[in-house]
Write a protein that binds this DNA or RNA. Structure first.
Lengths: 247, 247
DNA sequence: CGATCTGTTGATGCTCATCAAATCCAGTGG
DNA sequence: CCACTGGATTTGATGAGCATCAACAGATCG
């Protein structure tokens, strides 16, 4: 799954073999984690950067009233928290959503990369900038789009990201999220999310059942959601071209 | 106003005189801009990083239906778009909100900094991580908080940021935003924003009139808004201590 | 096989958008 | 100095979108 990460980083620019090796060797062995556990919690001082090997996680914050807001989904190949070497304390938590394996890059190894591998450093920096761009799009999504478009837009994004990570078959992907977890990310109630999902299904755009997302009308979905993948900055990905062609 | 930037960067760690000089000398002379102009537009390939000398700007995207969503406010001392050196094309625009002066750091100068001034580079990287953290908080704000808390939270943030930039007097600051511009950031209609502002005023929390924000009950406001400034990562700022003490 | 989590359905009401019009204000030109 | 103008703020009325509460059906799992 380091392959997935490398593959993603190469959306910025091709990596030297040396850089690939350095990154690979920096990784600690994957740790098994279960749904409900935190990779790291708000307020903690992190010592590792974490990499999702398999399984899904999310960034989230808890509000004063106990509600959880999910700010990002992390799928296999995603780095969880590069920030962390530079920020003192986590301002949010990272929680596991499925059975998962998580590897780490020790702070020390990362410092070494920063000091001696400028190209790799830039690639990692690039990757956080993409995360930031994604965050901006989510902000637009929650701020301005009604519930149906909002969910549709999320599914577009997830399908593209999964595609680039090699996690799709045709227009289907494993999506191990409950409607509750979707709701906490979209700022909707579970009930409303449920009704919107039914509507998207009725309209022949997609179905979500048994942890599998199937997109039936990709073109229709992207148009409905006003989805423009520019913000994912994946222009270089070969796996993207057919999808993008369809947009 | 480079002072403000340096002062902000030193929230990460004190800068060497050498680094301060390098940054100062990298700046191009400020250019005068007017409300409505774009510093840079979506899709463009940027050649400078921009620094707000005076006046305000915002990051925004235009949606398919013509609505504008504001994703960040930029005040004097804020860098607009460091990303830019690494991302190919802007996935959003930066628009001027008041008469303003904007300086630039040429891409070339920035590359030089990246290559030869690791500490300064880290400080700049840190600064984008804070931007990202702010984005996450905005996401929570729009996703989960009702309109009154949402606006209150925004005002808390703006006051703290202005305070650190030396732009406040007591609990007042110049806030040159129309209710329309506030609405576009909060995902509310102008009408509703207006009513919420009246409510916050009636409750004695703050008044916003004639481009001036006056917070009358800081403690009450932060409690009402569920505001925790951790995400701004300003622990080192001396100017913050009195405000934070009040939280 | 019950216990628990997830998904589904119905009913009710609040928050907020929308439309429309009135007022206020700063700037501009006669 | 005043009339004019266009933008910003304010007010009222109406209705849509979505939250909330409650209950039930299905799935999953030890």
């Amino acid at each position: 799954m380091i392959e997935t990460l490398l593959c993603r980083l190469e959306n910025f620019q091709p990596l030297a073999d040396e850089d690939r090796r350095v990154l690979q060797q920096a990784l600690t062995p994957p740790v098994r984690m279960d749904r409900g556990e935190d990779v790291i919690s708000e307020g903690e001082r992190p010592e590792h950067v974490h990499l999702m090997i398999d399984g899904w996680a999310c960034r989230y914050k808890l509000l004063a009233d106990g509600q959880r807001h999910i700010m990002a989904y992390l799928m296999p190949g995603d780095l969880c928290d590069i920030h962390i070497t530079l920020l003192n304390r986590m301002d949010h938590s990272i929680g596991i959503l499925t059975r998962a394996h998580v590897a780490g890059i020790p702070r020390q190894a990362l410092d070494h990369i920063y000091a001696h591998h400028p190209e790799l450093t830039r690639a990692l920096f690039w990757s956080t900038l993409v995360d930031e761009a994604t965050l901006r799009e989510w902000l637009v999504n929650e701020g301005h789009r009604p519930a149906d478009q909002r969910l549709a837009h999320l599914f577009c994004e997830l399908l593209v990201r999964a595609r680039v990570a090699g996690l799709t078959e045709n227009h289907c992907m494993e999506l191990p999220l409950t409607q509750d977890e979707l709701s906490d990310a979209m700022g909707l109630s579970t009930v409303h999310t449920n009704r919107v999902l039914q509507k998207l299904r009725r309209e022949g755009l997609l179905t979500l059942r048994g942890r599998t997302l199937s997109v039936h009308d990709w073109q229709g979905l992207t148009e409905f959601a006003d989805f423009d993948p520019l913000y994912l900055h994946l222009e270089r990905s070969e796996r993207m071209s057919d999808l993008l062609g369809g947009i």
